[in-house]
Structure formats: C-alpha cells, structure tokens
Design a protein around this nucleic acid. Sequence first.
DNA 1: TTAATGTATGAAACGCATTTCATGTCAAGG
DNA 2: CCTTGACATGAAATGCGTTTCATACATTAA
Lengths: 325, 325
Amino acid sequence: MPNIKQIAKIAGVSVSTVSRVINHHAYVSEDKRRAVMEAIVQLNYSRNLNAVHLSKGTTNIIGVMVPSINHAYFSRLMEGISSEALMKDYQLMVCQTNYNPVSEGKVLDMLKMKQMDGIIIGSKTLAWEQIEPFTEYGPIVACEDAGTSAISSVYLDHYDCFRQGMRYLIERGHRQIGFCLGRADSANSLKRRRAYEDALAAIHEAVREEWMFYQCLRIEDGLAVVHQWLRMRERPTALLVTSDQVAAGIITEARKNGIRIPEDLAVIGFDNQPIAQVFDLTTIDNQLFEMGSAAFQMAYDHITKKRTKPENRELGYLLIERSTV
Amino acid sequence: MPNIKQIAKIAGVSVSTVSRVINHHAYVSEDKRRAVMEAIVQLNYSRNLNAVHLSKGTTNIIGVMVPSINHAYFSRLMEGISSEALMKDYQLMVCQTNYNPVSEGKVLDMLKMKQMDGIIIGSKTLAWEQIEPFTEYGPIVACEDAGTSAISSVYLDHYDCFRQGMRYLIERGHRQIGFCLGRADSANSLKRRRAYEDALAAIHEAVREEWMFYQCLRIEDGLAVVHQWLRMRERPTALLVTSDQVAAGIITEARKNGIRIPEDLAVIGFDNQPIAQVFDLTTIDNQLFEMGSAAFQMAYDHITKKRTKPENRELGYLLIERSTV
DNA sequence: TTAATGTATGAAACGCATTTCATGTCAAGG
DNA sequence: CCTTGACATGAAATGCGTTTCATACATTAA
C-alpha cells in the first residue's frame, strides 16, 4: 500500500505538500497540486484513516449503545441518528449490549480509547454514576432523562406522557385501566407506574398488580397479554401499551378471540410507528426519529465546539387519536 | 492522556515491556508485570486504539452496508451479524446508503482506507464489477447471490424459493396469482419474476402486469395493494409477498374491508418474522439471522486465515404453513 | 564443559498523516 | 528603496503502540 511518502517522492514534493493537497489547504501551486494528484492516481493511493485518526486525535465516529439492534424502537431511533450523521460525514458504530453491564462498559471504554468521538446511549442498565466519569473523554448523550447527572440528554417526560394517556382514557369513561411496560425496573417504567398510580388515585381507583404487564417488548408479547386478560374474572377495559408493536399484537390476538376493540378493550400504543397507522391505532407519538437526530446534533455540537457542560433537551409528544379507544 | 511511554517511565521499564504486559505476552517477570499494572492504574491509562490500529494494520471493525437501518429485513440480518461479531470481539460500523451509489462507494473506500477489515453487504445498487476491485483490501461478503463475481456471498436461491411458493399456491387450486416485490430491477426481483412467469407458463396462465406490485417494502405499503386489488375487475386469488410486514399490512387492510383471508385472498409472506407468527401468516422462512451470522463468519475467516478466493454458500429456506393460504 | 534453549528486557524501526515552525520569494504600499 | 503581507514549500516534531532484533543471563541437554 502506497503512503504519503511515496506520493511525495513521485510528485517531487514534500509530504507536507501532499498533505496540503489532500486536505485542500490554501497555498499550494497549481503545478504541484497537479503533480500530487497525478501521483495519487498513478499509485491508486488512499489515506490510511488510522493514521489520520491518530494524528488528529478524532475519528468522526459516534458510538451508539443499544440493547438490541432488531427492535422497532431502536431502529427508528438509530434512523434518526443515522440521517443526521450522514449529513455530517460521521460514521456510526452500533454496539449491541443486550443490557449487559460488561458490554456497556466496553462501549464506554472505546470512547476512552479514542475509538469514537462520542456516544449516544439508546438505553442502558448501568447507573449514571458509572457512566459519568467517561464524559471526560467525549460527549455522551442519553436518549432518556439523565436527571441531575453530568450526562447530556434528549428525552421526554414519561410521567406527563403517561398521565396524558391515562387522562384520555379516563375522560372517555374508563376506570378499569391496565398497562404494558418493558423492563420493570427501568427509570422510565418507574415513572410511568407512578403516573399510573397517581392517575388512579385521582379517580379513587385501587391499583391492581394483575393489570400490570411487564416485559412487553415485541409484537409477540401481545399474545400472552390477551390470554391473561381472557382468564381474568375482572378485566381492565383499557390498556396503555408502551409499544405500538405490542399493541398491534394485542389487537390482532384480541380480534382473533372475538374481543372487540375498542368496545371490549381500548388500547393506546406508543411511538406512532408505521404499524400504528396500519392498525388505526390510537397512540402517543414520542418523536423517536427527532430524538435520534437531536441526540446526534447535541453530540456533534459538543465535539466541534468543544463544549463541556451537559445539555438537556426535553422533546414534546403528541397523542394521535385513531380508532382503538 | 497518558501514553505507553509514561507508563514505562513510572514502572521503570521499557515501552516494549509495557506493551508485552498489555498484550499478555510471555516472558515478563512478575515484578515488572506488577509494576506496569500499578502504573496503569495510577495514571488511569488506556491504550489509544487508533495507534493500535495503525500499528497492527487491522481494526477489528466490520462495515455493514445497508440501504436502511430501520427496516425489519435488515434489522434481523444485522442482528445475526451482530451476535456473531459480539462473540469475536468485532465492532460493527453500520453504514446506511439509501441505495445511493455514492454512499455505497464511500463504504468501499473506507475498506481501502483501512478503517474496517471487511464489509458485509446487506443490499446494494452498485454493479459487482464496481465492487470487485475492493476485494483486494479485505473480504467483502454479500448477502445475496454474487453470481460469478469475485465477491463472497451467502444467499438463497430466490428463483427456487419463489417457485416453491407458486407451487404451493397452485397445488391448492390457485391460478390467479399476483406478487408484491421490492425494487423492480434488483437481481432478486428479476429472478422472482422469472420464477413467477415460469410457474404461470407451466399451468398455461397468462402473465398480467396489473397483478405485479412493486415498491412493497414496508407494512404501510400493503394498504395500497389492497385498494388496488379492490378496484380490479379481475382479481388475483393469491399473492406472494416478499415481506411479512407488507403481508401483514395487506391482511389488516383486507380484513378491514371485509375481504376474507384466505377465502377471498390467500397470502404468503417472506422472512418468517415475529409478525408472521402473530398474524398466523403462511410464510417462507429464509433464515435472515443465520444469513447474517454466516456472513460474519465468512468475513471473519477470510480476515483471520487470510484466505483470498471467494466463497459462496447457499442457505436453505422453509415454507411455514399457517392459516393465510 | 560446551552447545543449545529458554527466559527477560530494551533499543530502535515501523506504521502514516498532520501540523508547526522556519525559510524564501514576490508583489504591493509607503 | 524598504517594509509588510500574501503565497509557497520543506524539515522535523508529533500522535502512540507493536514488533523485530540484539543482548544477556540462566538452564538444560549432550
């Protein structure tokens, strides 16, 4: 593989001049520029990016930490990140962690080892305090509320959001309400559960453990929810489901079992994914794509403007009224 | 940021010894090893991976070229790649191309510039001849039939596969059969169309342009198919749909319009994604996950064993009988 | 006892491009 | 005619870890 030195020799110039030509610096005479260009073509030369990265101290790579690559939520989020990264000529290093703390730690280490200029956290299991020290090595932007930590974040208020979903259901006469969440102990889930309990308290309804479904992450998880629902003596008349896919699974299985939507069971989804439109699903749009692109922009700004203090940006959400409530 | 030199100084050894300790080489006395380890902890040292990459000439990074990050097909494929990469301690650089030849070229360039050790092509628009020259810089594995080119590949016989779908429908009495494909001019689509035409010819049925739907990529694309179907005077009684998502969209919209599945319209999907299970959709499982992991393994083998001749591996497929035919 | 091995360690070369600093030329302004 | 700034170019330092080569001592086999 030819290097800059060989180009310099063939073109009859110094390596500095070659570098200037490659990087479009000013102050290179037309003759030499042409000579260099010709040498580059002649030797079929390409820069060794590892040398560039080492020399510059940056890589134009952003790490993306997600528990799973194959999940509608993260796919949409990554699409937002990617679209922005593409425009800024940044590459994405997608790191699947499976919520494994060791894997998550490895991603953080890669930032320290200068393999990437910054990290966007889609979701994680490590505590903020364990992540915080790494902000020293580059911007870390979380796509969830990072609270008072020194981590930047783009997020939405899931308490509010859930409250609004509850309000919407209650206004339409529902009092028997259940929910479907993902990880039981995640910060978001805890907030949602609190919103749920507060909303029920406000209408003097008791909280029932059996109406709370956890580990609802994928479309197929909707089936079990319906089967459990069918076995209950007292059933919720509405479900707040934090994933359109799960909601779609519920609706499909419900219809198969003769359950009318929304008469027998009202459903509100989350994310406003394409599947929600197809199912004519009432859902809360939480702007995942925008969250992804905002997260990238934030990381990018910190890298290029060398900002250090964390930034927090709250995004809005929007209840989309369709036919499942 | 501390470097290996400072560690060496503090530990009272040479940089070679530090490197040996870090890389777990033999022949380092216990005293020095400990001294080095202590210095590393003391200075909170981490290697600069860019220097490592430059020095070693490899990066342990595999590039993944996909048109879209947010698409069930590629998500599943990438999941397969990722699971294998995780085990081998490789990182994934996911490059979204939007089928833009310029973007695709950039990915290939990154291989040449040693930013990655190999490339897995999920799908592309460039011609094989344009890709071939880059195999010189590292293994390129395509997740589609690379024909007689010098590109390695993991693929399945989409002609056969489509023929089998057609046979299944014909055996069940269908003669009016249509299909839904993605890109009209992709190699796979052409093969499928050929299989379709051959199958119809075998039962002496004419080919009808209006029963061929293209650009069917996402769940929402199923709606338009149904609406067109409704407007036809003569309708196909069965559709071969090369995506479970699209099939699910079709089924959902069909049911909404009172079309009975499979009585009025039989549907076969492709991929055997979770959504197919939920919809109890008859589908052809083409082992996307396995394709992804096989592709990674192939790339990995070429990197580590420095093989050069291309390899081609055909995977099987399996028709999953469910209730939509 | 000698030759051959194994263990241990450091100096220096190597991978490659960027960037600062120094130097030099030439034209415009005073 | 001299100063100043724009233009042009190269030498050398810099970023950092890996690896080869040379060296030296301690064993072990012959």
